[in-house]
Design a protein around this nucleic acid. Structure first.
Lengths: 240, 240
DNA sequence: GCCGATTTGTCCGTATGTATC
DNA sequence: CGATACATACGGACAAATCGG
């Protein structure tokens, strides 16, 4: 993938912040200096800064400079903030992961399911229930419904590996926007059947509607997590 | 507050989307048309579109157009996504709200608290525990720690009303960035003491570090919610 | 398969406004 | 008041993806 200039500058500045070269509460060099350093235009640099701001790494202060607000402390181990595959999360935490496919079936959306999922009644879907086992414990139950027409050729074998790798890699479909809702819910009989709950009688639930690069919703997911292995991080900005 | 041009265009387009004038899955008019309509520059319009994209309202498709991906269905009642005060949330849901201040005391951060909160050991803080009562039920326990030097003149009376109105209105301090982590936790003895838990033995917890317009962290908060009155919505974009 | 029209994506240079010091 | 630094806006240019003829 070809990188845009602003993206390269963003990544370079981000590295310097995470590495501590630009320390927490300090100001990064001014726009004028950075424009000269990266030999780019004012607007391009500002675009890189906008990405840092949106990610909660810096806070521009009018008339003063751009202050670093990233703390080392921000790197939580089980972060679920961005769009990341289960395999990526497991790898980042150095965990041995296994995926067990428990349900793999065709499904047609009825009125009720359409209302909760955002699909249209009559849509032909593929329903997959998978259990994520980390270091021997069944911690996460992922319940996916994919729009069959947009994810053709799905098999149990792919589901055991990584569906998102298949979608992005093999199918070449871009994953663009993901709308998420987090709730806390009591365990159901399905949860009890599939997960190692220990003493927990409740779960953290991430409900997810994902759109591809064409703006078509191709996935509805419920990801049900044992609370001790769950945290979800995000950044909110006032006035956007 | 003076509105920027891109902000006005953003709000106008947003209204049309939410009102259904631009329907789900349809394409909004092209950039060229909108530039003519709003009589603004290419870049200014693109900035408005960027806001809509970040909010999960539209999905630009290269070479085709900008597709609406907002569904009426997206407006969840108890949404905690943006930066919104408790009073605003209550008003939006037409609920009668009362705030009870249970703890109001000075507090100096020690090493342990500094590590979890992001403050510095030795910082002088004001610690406030408040219970949020909605339509007669104590549903939320807010545990705030404010940096005393940045929030002077705080009183119990202000805490019973709205601290954020005091901060933004009276003190004139801008609230800019809020870093949040959501978890699900078992209830503690403090929760049992203050909240109407019904049968619930767990809570949805939002941990919050808030920075002002100068990039200084002035608040650390734990907001503990009864699960039946909690949902947190957010939008994630691939590649940002 | 190619070409041209349309549409979004990226980048540049410049000008002006506004907050801070 | 002037210098510095961020914020907004404009106009132009070219690249890249899509679609229809």
């Amino acid at each position: 993938m070809v990188r845009a200039i602003y993206d390269g500058i963003y990544k370079d500045l981000l590295d310097r912040i995470v590495d501590g070269e630009y320390a927490y509460q300090s100001f990064i060099p001014s726009e004028a200096v950075l424009v000269k350093h990266y030999d780019c235009s004012h607007n391009t640099l500002r675009r890189a800064l906008a990405l840092l701001t949106q990610g909660g790494y810096v806070q521009p202060v009018h008339g003063k400079g751009v202050r670093v607000i990233y703390q080392q402390h921000d790197r939580t181990p089980f972060d679920m903030g961005g769009i990341e595959t289960f395999k990526e999360t497991a790898a980042r935490n150095d965990l041995h992961s296994v995926t067990k496919v428990q349900v793999f079936e065709n499904f047609v959306a009825d009125e009720t399911f359409a209302r909760t999922s955002g699909f249209t009644a009559g849509d032909e879907l593929v329903h997959i229930d998978r259990v994520r086992v980390l270091d021997g414990s069944a911690l996460i139950l992922d319940r996916n419904w994919f729009l069959a027409s947009l994810v053709p050729g799905l098999t149990r074998g792919i589901a055991e590996n990584s569906i998102f790798e298949y979608i992005e890699g093999t199918l070449g479909m871009a994953i663009a926007t993901s709308k998420r809702t987090i709730t806390a819910e009591r365990v159901t009989s399905v949860d009890e059947l599939f997960l190692d709950l220990d003493d927990y009688d409740f779960l953290a639930v991430v409900t997810n509607r994902t759109f591809n690069g064409d703006g078509l919703m191709f996935e509805y997911t419920q990801s049900r997590h044992r609370p001790d292995c769950f945290s979800f991080s995000t950044v909110a900005l006032r006035n956007v």
